[in-house]
Write a protein that binds this DNA or RNA. Structure first.
Lengths: 245, 245
DNA sequence: TTATTATAAATGGTCAGACCATTCCATCAA
DNA sequence: TTGATGGAATGGTCTGACCATTTATAATAA
């Protein structure tokens, strides 16, 4: 019954407005794409002032529930809830040093294994085709040498996120999206200074896909964990080198 | 370089205000506990109006960066960034994004295992004491029979969340906080209609803690996964019964 | 007719100034 | 000493105005 995050302060009218609109969205009374009435109309319905209403709209906007456009025909439109806000808040945590690279690395090491384990039993023919295609993209980036590193990292990210997609579980999907978007900056800084590392990375992923195709979930899980751990170690070493000078 | 989440709209003054204050906080120019100037002073410094400033403060508040208190001696105080916002946004995702009980259950089954596996190697003496205390709470609820079910569920939730706390990894901590708060409503509806189920649940947790105390991470992981799976199965059966009539 | 350009209207963004509600604290009285 | 009271600081709300952007429409020129 603990209504998570609900400030107990009832003296703030804009909070009530936020809650009313949020509930309407979550309950489905307001659907994605629906347009809220204009501020001057909405304030009448809610019997409040425009400033108070606007403070509520700012909160809803920040929550990612609505998007506000300017000009005639503009206004507040109900947005599809995405993992963007999760990613943004994680980003805040990381930047204020509450979550370290080490925490993410540790989490990835376990969860990436879980994901390929699950994905293995749900692999379809078209998934295999897509994975092969993504692996091929990686190979082409690798062939371009150091110059191809940024694209290689992107391809790598796509493969990992595709693993999550195969599970069909939106929790894994949004989690991976968040994690990989936040970890990318470290990759850019710390990873793949040598071509051999890229090659090693690609070989790992090829082995994982091969094991998945054979239906060997445990092996796929094991390889991917080792894979993640190895690159976590690389990053840690590089980070220490950087700190040392 | 993709400056994640930054809206490209420069025509909104309150956005600039948000960014200025946020940067000051993240850069450490404003530290946790610092108090921002009063709105009437701050608006002068920023050369803006009070309404615009207040919209910015709403955003910062929603981001979890500041906390605002009423009355004399009140005002905006820089807050320690916590994982609450991650949990809240995840909560929004779950509540709006057609994340089903099945998705949560599947996720739990793997991740709860990961957590106790990690926790085992980090278990301290005081953690053991706390776990024993929590187990004891559960036993007392169990002794009260069906009447004690709500408290039993709460105690169960505390134990699981304490596992996450032991890992010391804020990702697991906020994840568990979110998951357990969201799953609780299903528990209330679907679980523990018979005392034997409560007893079974408690025995599982006692076995897990015992394995953790022995340092046997793999066994603890295995038991907890089985434990989660069993109760997922219970819930699924109950849900189908309910649908059937 | 067609393309371009002005005009008007709708809508969000900003502003100034007032008043209310809450909180803290100093003062005063019992 | 203790309790009550009132004043001051501060956030919360309201009103009404004006600005900036966008779209639709009408007027005008080719």
């Amino acid at each position: 019954m603990t209504h998570l995050f609900r400030a107990a302060r009832q003296n703030r009218i804009f909070q009530d407005v936020v809650e009313q609109i949020q509930e309407a969205i979550i309950d489905g009374q307001l659907k994605v794409g629906d347009r809220l009435p204009a501020e001057r109309d909405l304030k009448e319905m809610l019997q409040t002032s425009r400033s108070t209403l606007r403070e509520a709209l700012r909160v809803l906007e920040q929550k990612g529930l609505i998007e506000i456009k300017l000009g005639m025909g503009g206004g507040a439109v109900v947005k599809k809830v995405t993992s963007d806000l999760v990613a943004e808040s994680l980003d805040l945590l990381i930047r204020s040093n509450q979550v370290s690279l080490k925490h993410i690395a540790e989490f990835r090491e376990r969860v990436e294994g879980d994901v390929v384990w699950l994905a293995t039993s749900r692999l379809t023919k078209s998934d295999i085709d897509e994975l092969e295609k993504l692996l091929d993209d990686s190979r082409q980036c690798l062939a371009r040498g150091v110059e191809g590193v940024p694209d290689f990292l992107t391809a790598d990210q796509h493969i990992h996120q595709y693993f999550a997609k195969i599970t069909g579980n939106p929790i894994y999907i949004s989690l991976f999206k968040t994690i990989h978007n936040n970890i990318r900056r470290y990759f850019d800084e710390l990873l793949f200074k040598e071509e051999s590392e890229m090659r090693e990375n690609l070989q790992d992923l090829e082995s994982v896909v091969a094991a998945m195709k054979k239906g060997d979930a445990d092996t796929a899980c094991k390889i991917v964990r080792t894979h993640v751990r190895r690159f976590n170690d690389y990053m840690e070493i590089r980070e220490q080198q950087r700190k040392a000078g």
